[in-house]
């Protein structure tokens, strides 16, 4: 019974560590998907000249996972609200629980809402590209952290579990 309890503590903490490490990796993947999505949006706006609703829908078709759902949801919101900023903000709010992003990431994405759809082509592209550049900086900064933290968290859970078992015994 004691042995079972000890194993439960070790694997419980180990799993917690793995989940946290996974969250780090997922955040990075989501940020990269957003960068890809926004680059595609810049192409849709700049070259294809598609209306924003179509552009968002086409971006969603070229992505996968929850970020694709995000762009599809933004297109749907825009069709209902007729206001790009509001649609973008509302989609960001709806997806807060569905994507593994930090407050800083959300704030960075939220900046687009002020300009989306309401300026000329050159300024639209500039705004999207600026947002992409900011996200890329976040990704670069995170990549270093992820490398260190992911490895630490992966083992730290198990080690912490083992220490706890030793202390309790």
């Amino acid at each position: 019974m004691k042995l079972f309890g000890a194993l439960l503590v070790i694997f419980g903490f180990g799993a917690g560590g793995l989940i946290l490490a996974n969250a780090y990796r997922e955040r990075l993947a989501h940020l990269k998907q957003f960068i890809r999505g926004l680059n595609l949006l810049a192409v849709e706006v700049g070259y294809a000249m598609n209306p924003l609703e179509t552009a968002l829908r086409r971006v969603a078709q070229n992505l996968n996972g929850p970020v694709a759902d995000f762009f599809a949801a933004a297109a749907r919101q825009l069709a209902v609200l007729n206001n790009a900023g509001e649609a973008w903000q509302r989609t960001l709010k709806d997806f807060q629980g569905k994507l593994t992003l930090t407050e800083t990431d959300w704030a960075c994405l939220a900046e687009l809402s002020a300009l989306l759809g309401v300026t000329d082509q050159a300024n639209q592209i500039r705004a999207i590209r600026e947002n992409v550049a900011r996200l890329e900086a976040v990704v670069q900064e995170s990549q270093e952290k992820v490398k260190v933290n992911e490895r630490v968290l992966r083992y730290a859970g198990f080690i912490l579990g083992m220490i706890l078992v030793l202390v309790l015994y």
Binding site: V45, N50, P51, E53, A55, N82, T119, Q121, Q124
Partner: peptide, 17 residues
């Protein structure tokens, strides 16, 4: 004014150059 313009352009002012 901006809300009206946004509705008229379907939030895609960049397509109306």
């Amino acid at each position: 004014l901006m809300g009206t313009l946004e509705r008229m352009t379907a939030s895609s002012l960049y397509t109306m150059e």
